[in-house]
Design a protein around this nucleic acid. Structure first.
Length: 574
DNA sequence: GCCGTTTTCGGCCCGACTGTTTTCAGTCG
């Protein structure tokens, strides 16, 4: 088993322990360890061999043993025992809104319910409402949750969430008496997917704001409406929360509702170390002799009260950002304005919607100094990949376009070359040598064993003609899982061979994942933030790539397409 | 189950809202 598999086992263990009513801190220990494993830069085998596993934050003696057991045998005695004692249907019940471990346990103990279907029957028969601690409303809520559980559990791509959120945010800002309004939560943290929307408003008269929010177009259900918080559910299943606070608390609340949960836990712990308690309402002394800091007029002042510089929201994932801030090592994050071009773009020659000229004009309109064209290679016949003669014609067309001086934007002639099943490339070396650069990508044989896929990618990286690796894992967010590979080894090979790994900016991909970039860039790996544009409008997807790059702590110096044209030419050296 | 110059035990973030209760437990983020 690899790190990701073991992290998944720990998450399962945490859920099972919860259902058993185990110690909440023990449960959190398993969850923390799972997060640690997911984001750990080193190879698990190396850590175990060098006996350094317990040096990882959140992993102590017991969890280290469990990790070694899982890695060596693929099994875990504790997991098997827990599974035997908890019916699998109980885990599924936890996804129903309003049902937590306590209620699920009670349903199982009192009614013998151990499947969602059984729970539905019990609700319809009115037996749930008769239980102690339950009632008619709870029963009705459970039924509704069962009917809608697919829609409710759905996450949403960032652009989809933005499209819903922005009009609401504009509306909130336009309301009389509203002095501040922001979208917080994972949207503000620039996460690649969003579960629900969080809005925050500062005003002295909350009631009309709450009423406006709950009466929004498309709201199917108001699931909570209190003095400072309302929750609604849209027809699409998307949930949105609104919090309303007085202006003096706004920046504390904004920080709080931006999260992440893990970041907030770390911040509150830091506050307690200083004799202060941090909540969405402010910083208050909890120890004698500690003075309350002045009310923060900005998030920066809040951080300053705890001795830290402002931490950008996209870094607030509880992944060591406080330590980074403390030591003055916060990155100077890359921005869209730093980009001077992009590689990996398609035209009508393969499966794009716009011509070479149209794509170049669009890049010039964005102010880019250069544009890389990388249409599909011949094996990607599903995408109308180019045979050798067509690619040679395209190269000639590009040279001619550059010579014409029609656009203030240089075009690089590249190709998105398929990495074949054995790791060889889809064109012969002489043709590859005629190109300015090569993006090497996997488009078939996704189901290889991890070791085979890893070797395949490494072989491609070792080919001298390859400039960069396209979409590392082939994942499609919310649709297709990444193919199996050892990312650490591929990253090592890219660094060793001086190759780039792209950050594919298509909002469905955002591949390679930002979590991997945090350590990869530190070790010298460069990226290219590539839109993978199939039409002119697609070029602007680089913004989503920049969002992910910022989460991965990347600076302009880590990004190949932040380099000026002359330097790119020099490095491509062809 | 982890962690530690308040260290080997006793902590472990904090508050809103709902529904079911007569003062609070459970869920959620």
């Amino acid at each position: 088993m690899d790190k990701t598999d073991i992290a998944a086992v720990f998450d399962t263990l945490a859920v099972l322990l919860e259902l058993r009513g185990d110690n909440p801190f023990k449960i959190r220990a398993y969850q923390n360890a799972a997060r640690s494993l997911e984001t750990m830069p080193e190879d698990l085998g190396v850590l175990i061999a060098e006996n350094r596993l317990t040096g990882v934050r959140g992993i102590g003696k017991d969890l280290a043993e469990r990790i070694i057991e899982l890695r060596d045998t693929g099994r875990c005695v504790m997991l098997e025992e827990l599974r035997a004692s908890v019916p699998p249907g109980l885990i599924a019940m936890l996804d129903i809104p309003g049902l937590g471990p306590k209620k699920v346990k009670a349903l199982h103990a009192e009614l013998g319910v151990d499947t969602i279907a059984g729970l539905q029957t019990a609700c319809e028969a009115g037996r749930v409402a008769e239980l102690k601690g339950f009632g008619a409303k709870t029963q009705e809520k459970i039924l509704s949750g069962i009917r809608n559980r697919e829609a409710y559990a759905m996450r949403h791509l960032r652009p989809v969430a933005l499209a819903v959120a922005m009009p609401i945010l504009d509306g909130l800002r336009a309301l009389p008496g509203v002095t501040h309004a922001e979208a917080a939560g994972s949207l503000r943290r620039r996460m690649e997917t969003v579960g629900d929307l969080d809005f925050l408003v500062a005003t002295d008269s909350p009631a009309p704001v709450m009423d406006w929010f709950c009466a929004q177009h498309g709201v199917r259900e108001v699931t909570a409406k209190g003095e400072t918080k309302s929750s609604v559910r849209f027809e699409s299943g998307l949930q949105a929360d609104l919090r309303v606070v007085p202006a003096a608390q706004f920046h504390y609340a904004l920080h709080h509702f931006t999260g992440s949960k893990e970041h907030n836990v770390a911040m509150r712990r830091r506050a307690l170390d200083r004799g202060l308690s941090l909540s969405e309402w402010g910083l208050t002394p909890v120890e004698l002799g500690v003075e309350a800091p002045p009310v923060a007029q900005s998030e920066a002042e809040l951080f300053a009260s705890l001795g830290l510089p402002w931490i950008a929201p996209e870094l607030r994932e509880g992944m060591g950002e406080l330590e980074l801030a403390e030591s003055g090592k916060l990155p100077n994050l890359v921005s869209v304005q730093d980009l001077r071009g992009a590689f990996h773009n398609h035209t009508t020659a393969s499966d794009g919607r716009h011509s070479l000229e149209e794509m170049t004009a669009a890049a010039a309109a964005l102010g880019w100094e250069y544009l890389g064209i990388a249409d599909h290679s011949k094996s990607s016949f599903q995408a109308n990949g180019l045979y050798e003669d067509r690619l040679r014609r395209q190269i000639a067309d590009i040279r001619k376009l550059n010579a014409s001086g029609r656009f203030p934007c240089h075009v690089f002639a590249g190709s998105e070359v398929d990495i074949l099943k054995d790791g060889t490339l889809d064109y012969a070396d002489d043709l590859l040598g005629e190109l300015d650069y090569v993006v090497a990508s996997v488009h078939n044989a996704f189901t290889l064993e991890e070791s085979e896929m890893t070797a395949r990618l490494i072989r491609a990286l070792e080919h001298p003609a390859v400039t960069m690796l396209g979409h590392l894992t082939g994942r499609l967010l919310l649709r297709r899982e990444p193919y199996k590979l050892n990312a650490a080894k591929v990253i090592d090979a890219a660094i060793a061979n001086g190759k780039i790994i792209e950050l594919n900016a298509n909002p469905h991909r955002l591949d390679m994942d930002w979590r991997l970039w945090i350590h990869a860039a530190e070790r010298g790996l460069m990226t290219s933030i590539n839109p993978d544009a199939h039409e002119t409008a697609g070029l602007e997807h680089v913004a989503f790539g920049v969002d992910a790059a910022r989460k991965g702590r990347l600076e302009a110096r880590h990004v190949f397409n932040c380099l000026p044209l002359a330097e790119v030419r020099r490095r491509l050296g062809r």
